[in-house]
Write a protein that binds this DNA or RNA. Structure first.
Lengths: 161, 161
DNA sequence: TGAATATATTTTAAGTTTGAAATTTTAGGC
DNA sequence: GCCTAAAATTTCAAACTTAAAATATATTCA
């Protein structure tokens, strides 16, 4: 049997509001734990991790604008983060042959190594935080989120910078 | 039948990592839309809305520290937000009889009215964003999130300020 | 060609958020 | 009553984020 937590009298909009607040609470709680772990155990931040993660996914490098688009943050934002990663020898900027305006941001070998170490811990943190979820739970939530995400991606381009 | 999106070979930790990234993407997308709507249609911000929402839920007022605990933001943060709401006549600070250290933050009638207007729109925005979710989806996700949230609330107190 | 427009990025200014220090007040032990 | 510790809040400095302006390069097309 299915446990029905939403009253039949309640308008659907109220149920949707409540599930959104619950979803937000869960996401914020997990994110806060990740930030804490990155700071306390590795002396870094989530924005830095996100940038390194994006660069690791594209070994040939990413243009600064592609990077900010991919991460959905402002252009000026990634400039500062890549600056610092570069200072620390974790990233570098490579000129694009045909275009003097653009630069490709890349991880250095040292940066890639550092990211892989972080990513390994990150996966473990998430694995513990989602301890209670079996494959069935994951599949159910994944299918539900797909509905919301597909619905949402229509409007995506309206708000791109 | 159930559509199984996670491969049987894949370690559970990888599946959990992927569902976390998907969850985060959905939550960030929805939150971005709410921020946009609050800014463009009502000239306000999500932190302000969150503070007003918390104060509306506690008509007798909230101590500043209770407010920051409830919202899981820093102490100094709510000071600034309540300051501005107060300047605009939407909130006020009431002295606590027995304790000269503490103050209760409260919504003014004007503030409550403004919040109820915002809350009405907010519910509609969420209702549209979660358009694809029927009661069954909501119940499934709610049950899954309960597992994660209960697991998580144990550690909550460790990190309270 | 060269003028106008578009693209890629950085710089800048303003606003947020945080954690920690500082301030003020309260409570408890002796 | 006094002294120390705890509690409530604010102030402060640093980091982050954004939107917009500035800079430099590329492309279009008359």
């Amino acid at each position: 049997m299915t446990l029905e937590t939403t009253s039949k009298q309640e308008p659907l909009s109220k149920a949707r509001l409540r599930i959104w607040l619950k979803l937000l609470k869960a996401a914020n709680g997990i994110e806060a734990e990740i930030r804490r772990n990155l700071r306390d155990q590795h002396g870094t931040t989530l924005p830095r991790f996100d940038v390194m993660s994006a660069l690791a996914r594209f070994p040939d490098g990413l243009k600064m604008s592609d990077l900010s688009n991919f991460l959905k943050v402002s252009n000026g934002n990634v400039t500062g983060i890549v600056d610092k990663l570069t200072e620390e020898g974790l990233a570098l900027r490579v000129a694009v042959p045909g275009d003097k305006r653009a630069q490709l941001a890349q991880l250095t070998p040292k940066g890639l190594l550092a990211f892989e170490e972080l990513a390994h811990h990150h996966e473990n943190w998430i694995n513990k935080l989602l301890d209670g979820w079996a494959v069935e739970d994951i599949d159910a939530v994944s299918a539900a989120l797909d509905v919301v995400l597909s619905h949402h991606s229509d409007k995506e381009s309206d708000h791109a910078q």
